[in-house]
């Protein structure tokens, strides 16, 4: 029997208006229906914020785009999730290649217990890239991209765990950028950071959207309104409202959205 070859199906050179799309997406964790049928188009090179109360399904929905939910017991999906027009849940999809295209940053900075250099070069090394000069260039470029280079250039061999929380989070973003994704998913990336580090990450998000499509889950309403171009409000597994951020935060269509963003929910 011939084993089916897994392919990298995403061609990010294609310029499409909508980078990410979902059609009739439903998600179950065993019997619990976490996502109840969502159609959504996410624009390329824009920042899209997902907001909603805890348990509304926003993180589950975010993790669909790099198939992070695959590891969760009892996870089941119905509907289509496409990136650049290709269904990423087709059997022949190479999930490692998919995750190279779709970087992720988590709530708590999670650097590896290795040096700063090794952290950023990690993704490239596991792809088999060994050329020292190439790796050095990539690491420098990624660290410069997240405005961390000047702070760490003389200590690249120092443990990443010695960095501050804000620096660690920027390092994690640099690590994600090193493998050249076209999409970055951020799951509450600043909830563990102080205001100054938060502001640096937000500036970075603003800078990065020129080259990346960014989706961010946040519980901070001001953050959503500051950094995003589009905002989606989720509640009980449904997409209640999805609009331009400037519209949603000044004149939302739905009463539920208004109650949530003004802090009167429930």
């Amino acid at each position: 029997m011939v084993k089916e070859k897994k392919e990298n199906i995403i061609d990010s050179n294609l310029q499409r208006k909508h980078k990410l799309r979902t059609k009739g997406v439903k998600v179950w964790y065993d019997d619990f229906m976490a996502i109840k049928g969502i159609d959504m188009n996410i624009k390329a090179n824009k920042v899209t914020a997902f907001i909603g109360p805890s348990g509304c399904g926003k993180s589950t929905f975010l993790r669909l785009f790099n198939r992070m939910n695959d590891y969760v017991d009892g996870f089941r999906l119905e509907g289509e999730v496409t990136i650049d027009g290709e269904n990423i849940y087709k059997k022949k999809v190479n999930v490692e290649q998919l995750r190279k295209q779709v970087g992720m940053v988590f709530q708590k900075p999670n650097p590896f217990p290795k040096s700063i250099f090794e952290n950023v070069a990690y993704g490239l090394k596991i792809q088999g890239l060994k050329d020292k000069k190439f790796l050095q260039e990539k690491v420098e470029r990624s660290l410069k991209r997240v405005a961390l280079w000047d702070e760490v250039k003389d200590d690249l061999n120092k443990s990443a765990l010695a960095l501050s929380g804000g620096q660690q989070q920027r390092l994690c973003i640099a690590r994600a950028l090193a493998v050249e994704p076209s999409i970055i998913l951020m799951d509450e990336p600043t909830s563990a950071l102080d205001p100054l580090s938060t502001s640096k990450i937000e500036e970075l998000i603003y800078e990065l959207k020129k080259d990346y499509t960014i989706v961010i889950v946040t519980h901070n309403m001001q953050q959503a309104s500051r950094v995003s171009d589009y905002t989606a409000f989720f509640y009980l597994g449904e997409l209640i409202e999805y609009d331009k951020t400037k519209k949603l935060f000044t004149n939302p269509e739905k009463k539920q959205t208004e109650n949530y963003i003004t802090g009167r929910f429930g």
């Binding site: 309403m221 001001q222 309104s225 935060f249 000044t250 004149n251 939302p252 208004e258 963003i261 003004t262």
Partner: peptide, 9 residues
């Protein structure tokens, strides 16, 4: 209070 939507208006 960082008002938004109808509170801001």
């Amino acid at each position: 209070h960082n008002p938004v939507a109808s509170d801001l208006r």
